[in-house]
Design a protein around this nucleic acid. Structure first.
Lengths: 158, 158
DNA sequence: TGATTGTTGATACTTAGTATCAGTTAGAGG
DNA sequence: CCTCTAACTGATACTAAGTATCAACAATCA
């Protein structure tokens, strides 16, 4: 049912991006790409390596990290700093954007700010020249919000 | 010359915060606190443990991490996600703020946004309820800016 | 079909961080 | 001042991220 090779659009984009860098087509790469394309949520490196090993136990950890790095270089995968370690996520958005991660289900969405330059102005005010910035938001997604118990009083248990 | 036990204000604040939690005074803690207070810049865990070991080689790595965690709990130390791993920094600012880290010298400053609520609004627009957010900026501090070669054409070497 | 060069998996290493646990000690109460 | 106990400690060991190395291998070009 679920496509084992994931989002075909994402898959193609990633392969093209690697092609564009003059990188070779290999079976390990193809396998890892399929797994990445099949990931719906941000994933930890161990989740990824686990799923890759499920498809082909011969593929080494190093190759997974190597490909992650290549994909990050192409801007197709981003690394997020979760509170409990690093998260990688497939991200096809090309414009400047930020990520919201749902603290309940892990699903991630992207958004952008009306006035993104405000950050640059703020640091200029203290004499810094901005190079780049990372904004990471954690919250509750619409779906998980709906499933919250409406019976809970304002001060729910931790 | 340089005070070996660091900023006495920071030191006192940290000790008081630990006191307030009913934590005990011990020599290892005192030593680590002094090193943290003496750090002028954000530091990696290995930098910290190294300097601690210099003062007292008997202090274990675990105790260093334990204290870092306590200090983070008190809000006196923050963990930043540098591009090359984690950074911890002493931070006495109490209000909501963000960090700019100089990519040249490593010095960090804090700043705040005119309209910090804009982030919450932006994610609300896509249906999320914001829990918390992390904004991390990298750039060049005023001092390092001054020391840049003015002879370089707009396209300097990487 | 080679030859070349990029890629691979294995191995080993570094660093962050946590868990466990027996021994030690701060410091409260008597 | 002593005693008791909970807090704290260092040692050890473990998981996980990530990088380096290197000989074997395979994708692609001629």
């Amino acid at each position: 049912m679920g496509p084992r090779s994931g989002d075909p659009v994402a898959l193609r984009l990633m392969e093209r991006a690697l092609d564009a860098q003059g990188l070779r087509h290999t079976l390990p790469r193809r396998t890892i790409l399929e797994v990445v394309a099949a990931m719906g949520h941000p994933f930890t490196p161990s989740e990824l390596t686990e799923q890759v090993a499920q498809r082909d136990p011969h593929i080494g950890r190093a190759s997974v990290f190597r490909l992650l790095q290549l994909l990050r270089g192409c801007g197709l995968v981003e690394r997020l700093h979760g509170p409990d370690g690093e998260l990688y996520t497939l991200c096809l958005a090309t414009e400047h954007h930020h990520h919201v991660t749902c603290t309940v289900c892990g699903r991630t969405a992207t958004f952008s700010l009306e006035d993104d330059a405000a950050v640059g102005r703020a640091v200029e005010r203290i004499g810094y020249r901005m190079d780049h910035h990372v904004l990471q938001v954690f919250g509750v997604c619409p779906a998980c919000r709906d499933q919250e118990q409406p019976s809970l009083p304002p001060e729910g248990p931790r």
